[in-house]
Amino acid sequence: MRSFRWVGMVLMVLAALLPIAAPAQGNLDIDSPAITALRASMQQRHAQLAPLYAAGAVGLAGDGTVAIRDASGVPLAQRAQVNGLVAAENADRVALYREIARANGHPEWEADVRRTFAQRWIERAQAGWWVQAGGNWVRK
């Protein structure tokens, strides 16, 4: 009888451990205040970046960032602004990957999150945009 109670206690400990494992199977938390702010910031910037993607001046890099692909179509006077946009977007993206990993309790996931986003940005890029595949620029 006593041994049954012992097994019961162990089972209770196991049951208590289950919720710890559960979140990994469902959704990642992407609603922390830091992530929400980054999403809003990137969405606002997209209005300025979209024409640059379409023109091929800026492309989606293979590492989850954006990069200047061909600035020759951008008027000289606007190039500094484009550089600034790209730098600001990349700062947000890197912060986003870090914050997602952190919000889910695994800062070490940052590189995996980044890799996942890199694939998805490229996968979902619009026709005509330039994306990096194996180090080369390809037009979708």
């Binding site: 400990v13 196991l14 451990l17 289950l18 710890i20 494992a21 990994a24 199977q25 469902g26 959704n27 990642l28 992407i30 999403r39 990137m42 969405q43 997209h46 979209a50 986003l96 997602i100 695994h106 996931w109 995996d112 999150v113 996942t116 986003f117 694939q119 998805r120 940005w121 979902r124």
Partner: peptide, 29 residues
């Protein structure tokens, strides 16, 4: 029990893709 906890440290790739898609849809509208 240790096995359960160990599984949890693996990167949840499917969940991450879902999260990425949600954010991409929002950012790119």
């Amino acid at each position: 029990a240790a096995g359960c906890v160990t599984i949890n440290i693996y990167f949840p790739a499917a969940a991450a893709e879902k999260a990425a898609d949600r954010i991409i849809e929002e950012v790119w509208q």
